[in-house]
Computed example of a mutant assay.
Amino acid sequence: MARRLTRALGFVALINYLGLIAIGALVLGPAGAAPPDLMVTGYGVAEIEGYLAGLAGVTDIWPLAVALLDTIFPICLGLFLALLAFRWNRGALAWAAALAALAYMGADLGENWLIRAFAAGAPVTEPAVRFTAQVTMAKFALLAVAVLLLAVSGRRGRARARAN
């Protein structure tokens, strides 16, 4: 049961990610709405304003589709990585990997909420954008930590299984 759930979450995360990439490349990118949540090194007021101006140039269905996919994606990816950690190993490293994956999920969902608040009319101020950009960078850092811990945990789990 847990194996099927893990695979299903991974598959749904992948499909959502591909959907987000397709919408970004085919709809939002040409409209000038480069999604700030893909900017690993952060962004400023100009990038948020450019994103919002680009969103104004596309039909309402595309921002709604992005909001839906970008809510489902971090939930599925975070849970997938957390479950995978316990599938590959038990112990402190598995817990650390799972907690990092769940922290990534929370950061990504929080970042999405902050960016959607700008789209809904929240003031685009330098402090608000700086905080949102810091959440974006934290999201990527947490994802990297989760994947690194998952790799180490999985390797140790396989080594322990071979030793038995």
Results as ranks from 00 to 15, higher is better:
Thr6Pro: 00
Val66Leu: 01
Glu111Trp: 09
Arg4Lys: 08
Leu69Met: 10
Ala92Asp: 05
Ala100Asn: 06
Arg7Ile: 07
Ala67Tyr: 10
Ala103Tyr: 02
Leu81Arg: 01
Asn89Met: 04
Ile15Asn: 00
Ala94Met: 12
Tyr17Lys: 09
Ala128Gln: 07
Ile15Thr: 08
Ala103Lys: 05
Pro123Leu: 11
Thr132Gly: 02
Glu126Lys: 11
Ala94Asp: 00
Ala65Leu: 13
Thr59Leu: 11
Ala94Pro: 03
Gly24Glu: 08
Met39Lys: 07
Leu5Met: 06
Arg90Asp: 05
Leu20Val: 07
Pro35Trp: 06
Val124Leu: 06
Val124Glu: 04
Leu99Asn: 01
Leu14Trp: 08
Asp60Thr: 12
Trp62Ile: 04
Gly44Thr: 14
Ala53Asp: 13
Ala25Phe: 06
Leu93Gln: 01
Met39Asp: 05
Arg130Asn: 02
Thr41Trp: 15
Leu20Lys: 00
Arg87Asp: 06
Ile48Glu: 10
Ile115Lys: 01
Leu109Pro: 11
Ala103Val: 14
Val45Pro: 02
Ile21His: 09
Glu111Met: 11
Phe118Met: 05
Pro127His: 09
Leu14Ile: 09
Tyr17Gln: 10
Ala22Arg: 08
Leu68Trp: 12
Asp70Cys: 02
Gly42Lys: 05
Leu93Trp: 15
Ala97His: 06
Arg90Val: 10
Trp88Lys: 10
Pro36Ala: 11
Ala107Ile: 06
Asp60His: 15
Val66Phe: 14
Trp88Phe: 11
Gly32Ile: 11
